[in-house]
Design a protein around this nucleic acid. Structure first.
Length: 874
RNA sequence: GCGGGCGUGGCGGAAUUGGUAGACGCAAGGGACUUAAAAUCCCUCGGCCACAAGCCGUGCCGGUUCGAUCCCGGCCGCCCGCACCA
């Protein structure tokens, strides 16, 4: 008889329709079961899904289906991060409206995701470009404004000259715009800011509690927030005619007696003042500013400065005068924009001092080093130690000296205030959200010449994007739109101008997970009851590229929403975070050096290894390095094609097998084919099982033969291990267990006389089959439904409960104990599980290989680790 | 430069976290079925040795331990963050 073939295409369509019609994945907020919220980072609707999406959403779906089977009320929603610049670029290129382009992409990608068979609650779908969504975002912006979380200030911004927009610091990579790649310029603009820095302390401290986050991500956030504890310290100036002092920030007050100079940022007000009477200094400052941040990395940061002629008095010695420089390496927007330089204990200061002949007196002696012999050569000593050359501080430790300096200077007055105060600084800056773009959420503000920045009245929300715009010139079309831009002031009715900047799209994604809890609410962004019920997200899954920005902004947003009554008492949005690896693929290069797509290459595997040839003309092809799938390298694989050829289950299975989920997975043709073969193998196996298994309602036999027991043990053992692995998101290991069980079932079937299968064995097969199908159902849901039905079930496997492992079956009467002699394994001992140590020792020593290894030597000791191992020490 | 992570067969990776190294999969080789191929099934598969016995083997060197892929110290290599933050 010809074994039947599983037709994935047909079956997948069929089961997707059935799931849809039965509403299996629709989630109700009033369901009494315990909740579980699993979420994958929602996609940007770029056009089509890629393999990275397949991997990400396959993982989330396994978690969703697994937790559903384990009795949880699972929330597993999907939406679209739909605002952003590609839509405008497309508009410019193809003369399509951004909305048209975006919604067409959403339609395509929704269909693609549906073809994957994801157990999503599509009734909660949201798109951030929908006025029904961004209306709430505008309301929250106004609430934040009222609560004091919003700031409008002039600030130096990163200006992307190609995209003609402002970029956040985080969006500038190596001095270039993260999207356009253009060199970023510095410009001064008035911008809207969200005051994330006010939450810096809490955002930092709360990282401790995020135990189910990768340590790596927590560390990255910690560094990004960049807390430092130090002293804000004022130096009096020798000539106290105009500005009388300079305030610096330092984390090393213990090195104060090693100070050789003060340095100001080029854009420090005092620098500008000094430049008024010194044209050369003005020229130096101008040069520093011209370089800006963009070239800082290109110029290997040579330390340069210019002496202002000012002299500052040392806080502990009014006769000790320090030169004041303007230096290119001092940043205006960190600390006070001024530093004191201690060349012996700061590498930058040392380089600077060497260039200008300022000397370097060591004041901290490293532990275990003779102070008399200690000198500074090429490297500053930045560690802690014992104070030297520091008058009253000599002999103190760094930390005691810091404390002493702080204490003394706190109690000394300079002018009306203490000369120093302890200060905590953060690297984290406020979040500039203004973007000079059309396709984003409008900022609901109207600028009135008499009333200032006036919030748009709630009744006028949403401020909708006008449809009639054109992209045939650069810049923001909102800024030249007659009726959008020119409006009456809501307060005085006079002629006013609407804010034409839109919000950074990271704002949109900073609260979508909250919106999912009750996306139907038209009046409010969220229903606090729904938030209380569903939040936090139990398992969030996405790419490591969002380790800082998206996750930090979301953590901030959640706090700000709580403070304004939109998120109950919630502070942390994501209890569990998992960052999955990328999908990578080999690259191929033709003789002319151009990249070739996998479909253009043919392979030959011979004794000399694997070689590749171009399909078109048979010319040799160089197999290049394995890299992230990208259009430019042409090493992408289209999920649509894969699903069309092999089916969604195969694609999902392959994406989860082999590589641990946090690591990159290599897409190979062999790998998909192996997955596809396994799908067929399962189908055939279940077909056999269906004919061998006892009916579902057959009575349980009183006794099981050894063969039947083996089958039962294999099934329950696999169940236990798969359960454990899936709980920890170790999909690759769960899959290995399923392969293993498959092999065991096949072997068991191969060993029987199919004419006469005893009832107990039939029962064991029934039990194993029902377990087996449910084990792979989270990964290959369509195939599982098909198999479940073939096994005679009338229910859906996606609604079936997870099987319960019978642990008593796993416990063996006889156990195998490896026996070592002097740490080397020599034999296996099979013995009763409850044998005592004396019996084990006796049996172990009696084993032939053990005696041979001992070779007559006296046994000194026998170490027995219960249920584990025996080690004979001779 | 600073911080973090990782080095296990031809390849992806397992190893109950101090207790049988190499599960499972891929690739390769051999065989069965077939006119043939595909598909399927069976066997072999870290190295040395003719089999067995045995020896060696988790990047390298050393240490702790009855026992180390796992812990400690020192090197080497790769990957990823951050980068003048005072």
């Amino acid at each position: 008889m010809e074994p039947s073939r599983y037709n994935a295409r047909e079956a997948e369509r069929k089961w997707q329709k059935i799931w849809d019609e039965s509403g299996s994945f629709r989630t109700r907020n009033d369901d009494p079961r315990p909740k579980y919220y699993v979420l994958e980072m929602f996609p940007y609707p770029s056009g089509r899904i890629h393999m990275g999406h397949v991997r990400n959403y396959a993982m989330g779906d396994v978690v969703a289906r697994f937790m559903r089977a384990r009795g949880f009320n699972v929330l597993h929603p999907m939406g679209w991060d739909a605002f952003g610049m590609p839509a405008e670029n497309a508009a410019m290129q193809n003369k399509t409206h951004p909305a048209t382009w975006t919604y067409a992409n959403i339609a395509t990608m929704r269909a693609q995701l549906k073809s994957m068979g994801l157990s999503l609650d599509w009734s909660r779908e949201i798109a951030t470009c929908d006025p029904a969504y961004y209306k709430h975002q505008q309301k929250m912006f106004l609430d934040f404004l009222a609560a004091g979380f919003v700031d409008r200030k002039k600030s130096k911004v990163n200006w992307d000259p190609v995209d003609e927009t402002v970029l956040a610091n985080e969006q500038v990579i190596d001095g270039r715009g993260w999207r356009s790649g253009a060199l970023v310029e510095q410009r001064e603009l008035t911008q809207w800011f969200l005051k994330i820095s006010e939450f810096a302390e809490d955002l930092l401290d709360s990282l401790e509690g995020l135990e189910r986050w990768p340590e790596k991500v927590r560390l990255m956030q910690r560094n990004w927030i960049g807390k430092s504890e130090g002293l804000s310290l004022r130096f009096a100036l020798e000539a106290a005619d105009e500005a009388s002092e300079i305030e610096v920030y330092t984390t090393r007050p213990d090195t104060l007696f090693g100070a050789k100079f003060l340095a100001l940022a080029p854009d420090h007000p005092l620098a500008a003042k000094a430049a008024e009477r010194d044209p050369e200094l003005a020229a130096f400052i101008a040069e520093c500013q011209r370089r800006g941040t963009s070239e800082a990395t290109i110029e290997t940061a040579e330390k340069r400065g210019y002496d202002t002629g000012l002299r500052a008095r040392h806080p502990f010695d009014p006769h000790w005068l320090l030169p004041v420089y303007v230096a290119n390496f001092v940043l205006m927007d960190y600390g006070t924009g001024a530093i004191f330089g201690c060349p012996a204990h700061d590498q930058r200061d040392l380089e600077f001092a060497r260039a200008y002949g300022l000397g370097a007196t060591p004041v901290i002696c490293p532990p275990g080093v003779d102070p008399a012999a200690f000198e500074i050569k090429d490297a500053a000593y930045e560690g802690d130690g014992t104070l030297i050359n520091s008058r009253f501080l000599n002999g103190l430790s760094s930390s005691a000296a810091k404390e002493e300096v702080a204490k003394r200077l706190e109690s000394v007055k300079l002018g009306d205030a203490p000369q120093a105060r302890r200060q905590i600084n953060f690297r984290l800056r406020d979040w500039g959200i203004s973007r000079q773009r059309y396709w984003g959420c409008p900022i609901p503000i109207i600028h009135c010449p008499t009333c200032g920045a006036v919030p748009v009245p709630l009744s006028d929300l949403p401020v909708e994007l006008p449809q009639d715009v054109s992209f045939d010139q650069p810049g923001n079309p909102l800024d030249r739109h007659p009726t959008f831009k020119y409006v009456a002031c809501p307060r005085c009715g006079g002629a006013a101008r609407r804010e034409t900047d839109t919000m950074d799209t990271f704002v949109d994604s900073s609260w979508y997970f909250l919106r999912f809890t009750d996306p139907w609410d038209v009046a409010e962004p969220t229903d606090p009851r729904a938030v209380r019920h569903w939040m936090p997200v139990d398992q969030y899954i996405g790419g490591i590229e969002h380790a800082i920005l998206h996750l930090l902004y979301s953590r901030f947003f959640t706090r700000a929403m709580s403070a304004t009554g939109h998120a109950d008492e919630l502070r942390e949005p994501f209890a569990g975070l998992f960052t999955q690896g990328m999908v990578v693929h080999e690259t191929y290069r033709a003789v002319d050096g151009t990249h070739l797509a996998p479909s253009e290459v043919r392979f030959e595997t011979g004794p000399e290894g694997r070689r590749a040839f171009r399909l078109a003309d048979g010319s040799p092809v160089e197999i290049g390095p394995i890299e992230k799938m990208s259009k430019s390298k042409r090493n992408t694989v289209d999920p649509d094609e894969i699903i069309a050829v092999y089916g969604a289950d195969t694609a999902r299975w392959f994406m989860l097998s082999d590589s641990p989920p946090e690591r990159d997975v290599i897409w190979t043709e062999e790998g998909v084919q192996a997955a596809s073969k396994f799908v067929q193998r399962i189908y055939r196996l279940v077909e056999e099982l269906a004919s061998l298994a006892a009916p579902r309602d057959a009575p349980i036999p009183n006794q099981f033969s050894p063969a039947a027991m083996d089958m039962r043990k294999a099934a329950h053992g696999a169940l236990l291990r798969v359960e454990q692995d899936l709980s920890r998101l170790r999909f690759n290991r769960a899959i290995a267990q399923i392969y293993d069980l498959t092999n065991k079932i096949s072997a068991a079937i191969g060993n029987i006389d199919s004419e006469q299968v005893p009832a107990d064995l039939r029962h064991a097969f029934r039990e194993a089959a029902d377990i087996f199908v449910r084990l792979f159902a989270p990964m290959m849901p369509h195939l599982a439904e098909e198999c479940w039905a073939r096994l005679g079930h009338k229910t859906l496997v996606c609604e079936a409960p997870w099987p319960v492992a019978d642990k008593s079956l796993i416990v063996e009467d006889m156990i195998g104990l490896p026996v070592q002699v002097n740490g080397k394994k020599r034999a296996d001992l099979v013995i009763e599980r409850d044998a005592d140590n004396a019996a084990i020792e006796k049996a172990a020593l009696a084993l032939e290989p053990v005696r041979r290894a001992l070779d007559g030597k006296a046994v000194k000791k026998v170490i027995i680790v219960p249920q584990r191992i025996v080690n004979v020490v001779a």
